[in-house]
Amino acid sequence: MAAPRTARAIARAELTQQIKDEALRQLGDAGAGELSLRAISRELGMVSSALYRYFASRDELLTALIIDAYADLADALDAADATFSDPDHATPAATGTEPAAQAAQAERWATAAVTLRDWALAQPHRYSLLYGTPVPGYRAPMETTVPAERVMLAFFRPLEAVALAGDPAGDVADVGLNAELRAAGTLLGPHIGPARLAAGVAALAQVIGFVTLEIGGHFHGGFEPADALYAHAIEALTGSLGLVD
């Protein structure tokens, strides 16, 4: 049994969250490049030296915000995927290699794509922190990779399910790329063949690219809202993954 939290620990956790909340407000107003610990301490009525006891630098605070954002997005994706991955709720057609089973995995992949876009449109400043323009002078540490992988896995679980059912797809022609894909597959889906894994990486890149363009205002005056265009793109991508004809 975990030891009860002390009043000091609770107070520290609450103030840490206040710092993060103020940082997120700054992100929404001015972007990550303008994030300032001094400005945060001023808004919270703290001396800057006190804030540095919580986050030693701007980069440390950025890392915490990135990890939180990846975790929040991954939680949303996992929740959306629950009806597909829970045997008590999955439809009988959700397994196997027959067309109905393939279609179920296509729907599962499409649900992840819709969930990612919905999350991004609801909090574009956090999405931009993950997939937008890199923050000058900031290099994300390795500790951000695990929560980032959780997001990616939501898009590869349907491909792994299809592969496990007996349709792994084949290799790609480039020998070097084939080896890279097999290495990546140890994380993303060890049973996914290199050809489908490559298609999965490309499809996820297109999803992120679409949403990034939309958040950046590049569809204004042409496709606004971009719901129908996004639905069309998702349908095409599930076809490129070999999940639908």
Rank of each mutant, 00 (worst) to 15 (best):
L241M: 02
S240V: 09
L243M: 05
H232A: 14
A236R: 15
A236Q: 14
G217S: 02
I234W: 04
P225A: 01
S240Q: 14
E224F: 11
F223P: 04
I208H: 04
L213E: 13
A228V: 14
A231M: 13
D227Q: 01
G242A: 07
D227N: 07
T212C: 06
A236P: 13
L237M: 11
G222I: 10
F219M: 01
I215E: 02
A226R: 08
F219Q: 07
I215L: 14
L229A: 07
V211C: 09
L213N: 14
V244K: 10
T238C: 09
L229V: 06
I215D: 10
I215K: 02
D245I: 07
S240L: 08
I208P: 04
L229S: 05
G222E: 15
L243D: 03
G216H: 05
I215Y: 09
F219W: 13
S240T: 08
G242E: 11
H232V: 11
H232Q: 14
F219I: 04
A231Y: 12
A233Y: 01
E214H: 10
H218F: 12
E235D: 15
E235P: 10
L243V: 08
I208T: 09
T238N: 04
G239W: 03
G221K: 02
D245E: 11
G209K: 02
P225G: 09
G239A: 12
H232F: 11
A236L: 14
I234Q: 08
L237I: 03
A233F: 08
G216D: 09
D245S: 06
H220M: 11
G221S: 00
T212P: 07
E235W: 12
V244D: 11
G216C: 08
L237R: 00
A226D: 02
L241T: 01
A233R: 06
G239L: 06
G216N: 00
F223E: 05
H232E: 15
F219D: 02
A226K: 10
G239K: 03
L229W: 01
A228I: 14
G242S: 07
D227A: 10
Y230N: 13
D245C: 05
F223G: 00
H220S: 13
H232K: 13
G216A: 03
L241Q: 01
V211F: 07
A226V: 01
F210R: 04
D245Y: 10
G222L: 05
A236S: 13
V244E: 01
I215F: 09
G242L: 07
G221D: 01
D227C: 08
G222F: 12
V244Y: 09
P225Y: 12
S240K: 07
G221W: 07
I208Q: 08
A226W: 03
L243K: 00
G239C: 06
H218D: 15
F223S: 00
H218R: 11
